[in-house]
Each structure stands twice: as structure tokens, then as C-alpha cells.
Nucleic acid binder design. Structure first.
Lengths: 219, 219
DNA sequence: AGGTCTTGCTTACGACGTAAGCGTAAGAGA
DNA sequence: TCTCTTACGCTTACGTCGTAAGCAAGACCT
């Protein structure tokens, strides 16, 4: 009879599956993302998802790329330094908004289209700044590691190493201070400003790239 | 009677459990490390392991620290630059020998004693080079990320992105080259020498640290 | 000799990823 | 309008996982 009958329950699609999984991970952590749970959140059985996703790995890869797709695009109107800063900071803040994503992105080998777009933008920026292709390639890897892995470390420390067997307090006094003197001394006085640290390394990369550009050009 | 009777089957211990798990991971990959399989490789039931390991997370954390414990110690007889290079390269090569370890180390929050010793050595080196405690702290994080995450990326690319949905060849021609022009152009000419890239970033870090030391001292 | 502690084993539970096959509804061709 | 194909979601089932609970037997101390 009514030809649009099934609209009582919106039709499934890869995008809807991925979106549901991302939402689940955002709200209840990555461990909450199982085929069954994603199914439940869509009002559907687990096995139905397999029509739209090859397997769980494919789903996880899709989630990662979904998040990376939210990275801002390159601003071509500014100098390469500022352009690179924009790309890196934008990626950083998106990753912070989805704390499970950095870990997934670093731990799995697949590279989706959004990630390719991102590295393309980074390389484009570096080339525009005068890098040789080889230098742009190497620097891109360094930038990628900074974006994904530094952010990941930041997120881990944010939860606090305190929670995981080696509390900070214990390190700063007694046996800890004796066994790891430099670390203890440093932790005692250093500030733990994630943003500042992230920027510190970013500038460190930029300065290094700058130098590599000029030495390769100048001879 | 004989008080040392049970030696027919060497007694279990945390170290033996960890060693068996590490060996399993080395030989058959991290996925092969399940409580039951580790048990089998020790001639023991899975549940027996729980006398020596709190749970599986504890086992994984132990494996990571076991590998990190093999990192070479700091050479205090050379300058800070060479000392840092030694630490980083030593860590790098140990991680390459246990391909599963870098991924585990970056993905889990716990920090064991061996890792603390490692970062203590790094910080000691940096302080000896004239870093302020704050700078040593920040630079240490950058070094840690380089050691663990850059190595991890290297291992992932070694298996080849080719295997995972976005083959290199496809990128270099046709649609790939159109969608990601800078990336395609760069990949076409760049060499992929992991060692060189690792050294490139290491020197980049050292130069940056050097500069940060001198600017903070000089005012 | 009797009691306690240690250590490994047995059994069992719930959750996971997913292979195989079924029923049904939508859309195309006659 | 009627059939035929195709796409989609569901059902059932299997093997594997981590681990809770409790038992049994040897080691050690008194």
C-alpha cells in the first residue's frame, strides 16, 4: 500500500552506522563500541550492520576517518608557518573533542581519504614554504606524529598517571625520588601545561623545518 | 621427602608469565596473547596465571615494561647530544625488535618502573646539557613521543599502507593524484628511508632543544 | 600432627566477532 | 498488474575471550 512504509525506522547506511559508533564512543568510551551495542543504538540487530560495514575493523577505520574529516582545511591566504599552525592546531582540537580517536588513529594501519586529504594539506603547505619534496615528506611524518601521538599522550596524562599504579606523589618523595632523581626533581618544579607543551613542540618543528629549508637552499 | 620435589615443572612466577607472553607476542603477534594461550605455552591452565598477574591489563603493562627494561642505559661519558642520541637510538632498536611493543606502549596509560628509569635517563641527559627543569620536562615528552610513536608509525608503514585499502600505486595515478596532488607528487619522488627519517626528526629535536637552551640562558 | 598458606585446577558465565542462511519489501521489466 | 530480482534486516549458532568462585593438594610452621 503506502510505498514509503518503512520510514517508521530510518533506513540504515554506512554513514549512519559510523555516526552511531562515533557517538557511542564519545559518550561511553571506545570499549562501548561493539557490534551489538552499535546495533542497539540504531534499533537494529548486530548482524544487520554487516550489510554496511565489512567487519569491525572497517567500522573502526571508518570512525577514525570520520573524525579526521572534521579537521579544518588549510588556509592558503597566510604564510606557510601560520598555515601549518592552523592545520596542526585544528587537528589537535578536534582530536581532543573525541578522546578515543587519537589512540585509534595511531594504533591502526589503515589510512582513509580524510587522512589523505589532511596529509596532502600539510605537504602542500610545506611545499609552499619552500621545502624540497623529500623534506616535505619527512617533515609531514613528523607533523603527523606530533598531531596524533602528542595529543594521545596529552590525553593519557590528563586522566592522570596517578590512576595507574605509579602515582605522582609517590614519585616525588622517598623511594621514587631515590630511584628516579632527575625525574622527581623535574616533576617537582615543572608546570604541566599541555597547551604550552604542544605549542613548544610545534614551534620546535617549525624552527627545524625552517632551518632545513634554508640550509638546503643556501648550500 | 625431597623438599624440592615440584621441580618437575618449574614453578610459575610473574617473570615467567611475562616472559612467556613476550615470546608469544614476538612469535605470533599481539593477538596471540590470550590468557589461555599464555597458559598453554607454560603448560598451565589460564586461571593459574591470575596468581601472578592481576588481570590481562596488568599482563600487558608488564610486557611493555619488560621490553623497555632492555633499553640501554645512558652513557654519561659523552656530551649530552651524543648521550641523548644513544638513548633514543637504543630504545628505537629495541622497539623494532618487538614490533608489538611500541603500539602497546603508546596505547596504554600505565607507566612501569623501566619506563620511569628511561625518562629519568633522558631528563638527566637534558639537565646535564643545560636545560632548565621546565625545558627538560617538555623536551622529555617530545623525545618520548618520538621514540615510541615515530617508531610505531615506521612499523606500520613497513608492513605497507598498500595492504590496507589505499595502495600507493593508486595514489600516484589517476584519481589519487587528482584528489591529493601534493601528496602524490611528493610520494613519487621521495625516498622512504625509515632510518634517515628517524634521524632527521631526532636531529630536529636536538637542534630545537639546543636553541631553547641558548635563548633561555642568553636571555 | 594439625593448622595455615600457597598454588594450580575446575567449572561456569556473559560478552564478543562473525559465518550461514532465511524472510520480506522495494523496484524493474513485461 | 504481475512476476522476478535484488537489497536489507533478522535469526541462530559457533568458537573465543576475560575472569568470578570455589576446590584440592602440597609446603611450611608450630
Amino acid at each position: 500500500m503506502n510505498p514509503r512504509r518503512r520510514a517508521q525506522r530510518a533506513v540504515l547506511s554506512r554513514d549512519r552506522v559510523l555516526a552511531a559508533a562515533v557517538e557511542l564512543a564519545d559518550e561511553h568510551g571506545l570499549d562501548a563500541v561493539s557490534m551489538r551495542r552499535v546495533g542497539v543504538s540504531l534499533g537494529v540487530e548486530a548482524m544487520s550492520l554487516y550489510r554496511h560495514v565489512h567487519n569491525k575493523d572497517d567500522l573502526l577505520d571508518g570512525m577514525v576517518d570520520d573524525v579526521i574529516a572534521r579537521f579544518p582545511a588549510r588556509d592558503e591566504a597566510v604564510g606557510w608557518r601560520e598555515s601549518l599552525r592552523g592545520l596542526v592546531r585544528g587537528a589537535h582540537s578536534v582530536l581532543l573533542a573525541h578522546p578515543w580517536a587519537a589512540g585509534l588513529a595511531t594504533s591502526r594501519p589503515a589510512v582513509g581519504p580524510a587522512r589523505l586529504r589532511f596529509v596532502d594539506a600539510v605537504i602542500g603547505t610545506l611545499l609552499a614554504g619552500g621545502c624540497s619534496p623529500q623534506l616535505a615528506h619527512d617533515a609531514m611524518h613528523a607533523v603527523e606524529v606530533h598531531v596524533f601521538a602528542f595529543t594521545l599522550q596529552e590525553l593519557r596524562l590528563q586522566v592522570g598517571p596517578s590512576a595507574h599504579g605509579y602515582p605522582l606523589d609517590e614519585l616525588l618523595s622517598g623511594a621514587g625520588a631515590a630511584a628516579y632523581p632527575h625525574l622527581a626533581a623535574t616533576l617537582a618544579v615543572a608546570e604541566h601545561d599541555h597547551v604550552a607543551e604542544f605549542e613548544f613542540v610545534l614551534e620546535l618543528l617549525i624552527v627545524g623545518i625552517e632551518r632545513a629549508i634554508s640550509t638546503s637552499v643556501g648550500g
